[in-house]
Every structure is written in C-alpha cells, then in structure tokens.
C-alpha cells in the first residue's frame, strides 16, 4: 500500500505535549526567535555549509539518487521543502541537522549509518531529522538555552535557578526527540521501522541485522520498568537527567504507543480521506476513471 502524504501538516499536530507547551511559551516572546534564527543561526549555517560542501558528499538526483529519492518522498509526506543532504565519512552511526529553516537547511548522515540500516529505516532517520527542521528545534532550544544562561547571571540565587531551569530544558530536549521519532513514524507509517532504527542504534550491526527482533527489543522497556524501587528510581533519574535523548528502549516503546494512539490514527485517517478524495477527483488519474 502506498504511503499517505500529509499535505498541510503542521508541527503542532505531531509535537510531544511538553515540546508543544514549551515552544508555545517561547513563541509568546516576540522577536527573540527572529534574533536566534537570523543572527546566531545565520552564522552557524554559514560555518556548517562551508564544512559540509568542502568535506562531505552532497546528495542529488545525480549523486546517490536512491538516497535522494528517499529524501524527496519523506519531504513530500511531511509537506516540507527539500533541505540539502550530505553523506559524511564517520564510524559512528548518526545523523544531524541544524534544525533551523534558514537559507540553507541541511541534513548530514554518516556513512556507517547507511551501512547499518535498510532503505526504509534510512528514510525514517531522514524523517526524524526533517522533524527537527519542521519544528525548528534549533531556534527554540537555543533560545531557551540563552534564557537559562541569562538566568544564571542573576545573583545571589542565579546558579540555583539556572540549575533547575537547565533540568527542565533537558527534559524538553528529550521530549523534542520523541516529537521527531513521531515524524519518523509519520513517514514510514509503520511503527516497527522506527523502532528498528532505535534497536540498531542500541546494538545493531550489518551482520546481526537479519537476526534482530523488534518486538523483543520493545519488550525490554517492560523489563526496565519492572526495576522499580526507591533506589532504582534514583538511579534512573541520575541516568537520564543529563541525557540529550531518551533511552533507546523507551523511545521504541513510546513510538509503538503513539502508533496505537487516537491522535496518530486520526491524523493519518484525515489525510487518507483527503488523499483518496483528491485522487478520485483528478481527471488524469486512471484509477479514478
């Protein structure tokens, strides 16, 4: 079955609740997002553009076209303009973006990631990064970071206030990752694909790929939850508090849950209906005549 394009999709429709709340709060401060986007973002974008164009491979319809088509389809589904895509030689499977829709938005994927994942999973990774771009996490998280930095300058309790704000900021950073895993699901339209990406990042390799079991990996989250006493709660908090991303098994479980949720199902259903209606009304569509 072909994938449903989510035309007109808004970031707020798939943001994690905490990500949505925090972003809306910052959007109340007029001008600050513009400042981050145009001043800091503009400089960072230029530095990274020079680095990418000089030391990575720029993907296009003439360069790694299969990868380019995966990006094109993902952008079409998420209703987003095509960013530049670079492949970079690196032994650690990863991908990143500036997460800001400036003059030259981009995504970089590492070569080892392409070796580790199959095409559907690679597209889910691209969609995760496109999720950051769609939500412009780079703008809002940097802005929040600057505000925390400013709070730290307040005396005499500035340090304490900043510490508390920083913990909240990191909680937001982690929820922003849940948001982008949802973008991965919106493009793959199959929860197992996104969960498989997370499983392979946690313990995959090209030779193990065919033997890995996604359901068993999601079940690991249950084992994690079963370690439940005061000491374990403290350990889990310490383990998580400084992390930029939620723990892999929890990410896999979260995406599995969201796939079954009414919000995901209704989002897909609404666009499925719109897509079918538009296809039937198209006089050039052979299927509709």
């Amino acid at each position: 079955m072909s994938k449903i394009p989510l035309l007109g999709l808004q970031a707020a429709q798939f943001r994690h609740p905490l990500d949505l709340e925090a972003t809306q709060m910052l959007q109340q401060l007029p001008g600050l997002d513009w400042l981050v986007r145009s001043v800091l973002g503009g400089m960072a974008e230029q530095v990274l553009y020079l680095e990418n164009i000089s030391s990575s491979v720029l993907v296009s319809n003439k360069q790694l076209p299969d990868l380019y088509h995966l990006l094109q389809e993902a952008c079409h589904i998420l209703d987003l303009d095509l960013p530049q895509l670079y492949v970079r030689q690196h032994p650690t499977p990863n991908a990143y973006t500036l997460a800001m829709r400036g003059k030259q938005p981009f995504i970089v994927v590492h070569t080892s990631l392409l070796e580790l994942l199959d095409p559907g999973e690679i597209q889910a990774v691209l969609a995760h990064e496109l999720g950051h771009l769609k939500c412009e996490h780079g703008v809002y998280l940097t802005l929040a970071n600057l505000l925390v930095l400013a709070a730290g300058q307040l005396s005499p309790w500035g340090g304490l206030i900043a510490k508390s704000l920083q913990m909240q900021l990191m909680a937001w950073v982690r929820c922003a990752e849940f948001t982008c895993d949802r973008a991965g699901l919106l493009v793959s339209q199959n929860a197992k694909v996104m969960a498989s990406v997370l499983m392979k990042l946690a313990g995959g390799s090209p030779t193990l790929a065919s033997q890995l079991n996604v359901d068993a990996f999601i079940d690991q989250a249950r084992a994690y939850d079963q370690v439940d006493n005061e000491w374990a709660t403290l350990l889990k908090t310490l383990q998580t508090v400084e992390l930029t991303h939620p723990l892999p098994v929890l990410r896999a479980r979260e995406i599995d849950r969201w796939a079954d949720s009414p919000s995901y199902q209704s989002l897909l259903q609404a666009h499925r209906y719109a897509h079918t209606t538009s296809a039937l009304n198209n006089p050039y569509n052979c299927a509709g005549t």
Partner: peptide, 23 residues
C-alpha cells in the same frame, strides 16, 4: 571536523540536533 556543536549554555541544548546514537 566532525564536532560542529556550538556551545551556548548547556552544551547539548540548541543546535545541531542529532539522531541520538547512545554512544
């Protein structure tokens, strides 16, 4: 050349955002 993180306040909050390889 592979660590383009711009350090502002908390070094991991801001841009760029990555996929989250646990290592």
């Amino acid at each position: 050349s592979t660590t383009p993180t711009i350090v502002l306040g908390h070094k991991h909050a801001g841009f760029p955002r990555d996929l989250g390889n646990p290592t």
